[in-house]
Amino acid sequence: MSTATHRAARIAAARKAQSGDAGARRYCAQPMQTPRQFDSNVSAGRASAILASSKKWVNGTQLTYYCFKRGDAVPAAWQGSNEDAGVVEESFEAWAKLGIGIAFRRVEAAEDAIVRIGFDAQDGSWSYVGRDVLGIRDPLQRTMNFGWPLTTPYGQDTALHEIGHTLGLEHEHQNPHAGITWNRQAVIDYFQGPPNFWEESQIEWNILRKIPQAEVKGTTWDPDSVMEYQFEPGLIDAPAQYQAGLVPKGGLSYADKAWVVETYPGVRAPAMSTLKVGLSQLLKLKAGETRNFEFIPARTRTYSIGTFGTSDTVLVLFEVTPAGNVQIAGNDDSGTDLNARISMRLQKSRHYLVGVRLFYADAALETSLMVW
């Protein structure tokens, strides 16, 4: 069997695996976002470094999530089945078992969740990317949706894919390193037709647009990434081997796993230090890296925790609880001339965790952290 014939056969088999759709498949449609703009005093290199990490979570984060269900005060279409919610839980566990430095916990109330998940079949599948989730504050609004059953192989990959977005991953076929040349009109015709019915702006945002190099997960294209779409024959003009279609192998690829472990190091994270009042700690971070510090107050009072140095960071304060780390404050100073600072009343003998991700530093290894 020729390569082209083999790929066509894989596409046909994959189509059959998608429940309830005998023709063209449905795809993840990312919510369109306004690209971040920087002041003129922010250099291109600094802006690029900020964009490379600004959607990534700080190590130590616990992402709580909730699946809307029958009886919730949301549209009935958002309410999912126990079976689909079970696949969502399994998919979070698949990412977590890689030993990464962030955790996931399913909660029983939408107001306790950072990630809120609907199952509206008329709204497609989508998720906000990384820390963009934090901009959706209403507990009765979704940050993720599934538009088809998750109990098929394609549905299971969809769950992994949308969680990948929540972790900070973009669509892999929009990687500028992919070198994809699209048959633009064929792509537009395909996605404007059933069952997607996308507007041309959605097609541009989700397929044809190239993601800035600073925001991609690596220096090469990974056609087997769970973040890669499957494409029918005739949509890709180049590379030539994908003219007959592109079908990822399914599941998390080696590169997916490598990216999440590097971005959120678990056992490979730097040793945790303890903050002491009035003593600064040199962060010793390169751009994109994170570090965590413990802090146990000797008495109850208002404390300030802040960075020092010409740098761009995000600073997060967690309280360590039996149910996991609970974020209680945060500050992002990126793109400004300020330093990150949190002032908050903390309780004697309670266990707190301070997390920092460095986006950019004017001079390497010169940013410090202190509590006072």
Results as ranks from 00 to 15, higher is better:
K348L: 09
I117Q: 08
D123L: 12
L140I: 05
K276F: 15
E228Q: 13
A238G: 15
R46Q: 13
L98V: 01
N339K: 01
A329E: 05
L369M: 00
Y242F: 10
P194N: 10
V326R: 06
F146P: 02
A255C: 11
G86W: 06
I100E: 00
N339I: 06
H177A: 12
F119V: 07
V133F: 04
D333L: 09
I342L: 09
H6G: 15
R46F: 03
W198S: 08
L279Q: 15
V371Q: 07
Q213P: 08
G71H: 08
I180M: 01
E199H: 12
E108I: 14
S334E: 11
E366I: 12
V277F: 13
G168D: 02
I211N: 12
G45M: 12
G251T: 12
G147L: 06
I296Y: 10
A24W: 12
G168Y: 00
I11S: 15
A52V: 03
F318C: 04
V115Q: 07
L283V: 00
L51H: 00
I100G: 07
G179P: 03
P248L: 08
S53K: 02
A269W: 06
T336G: 13
V58L: 07
P270E: 07
L140D: 09
Q327V: 14
I136S: 07
T313W: 00
G147H: 01
S2F: 02
D332E: 12
S81P: 14
T367M: 00
R15D: 03
D123E: 15
E111D: 09
W198P: 02
T274D: 12
D312N: 04
L365C: 15
G71K: 09
L252P: 03
S48D: 12
Q18I: 04
E170K: 13
R15W: 00
I203Q: 02
A178G: 09
D337R: 11
T307I: 04
P212R: 04
V356D: 11
P139W: 03
P139T: 11
A329T: 02
Y66P: 10
E204G: 00
V247I: 15
W148A: 02
L346M: 14
T300M: 09
Y360W: 14
A17M: 11
E215N: 05
L63E: 12
F308P: 09
T302K: 14
T300Q: 09
I136Q: 06
V74L: 06
D256V: 05
E294A: 14
G60K: 09
G23E: 06
Q192S: 13
T263P: 03
I211P: 01
R25K: 15
S304Q: 10
A186H: 00
D362H: 14
H6D: 07
L353Q: 06
A44C: 13
A361Q: 04
A240F: 14
K286G: 14
S280F: 12
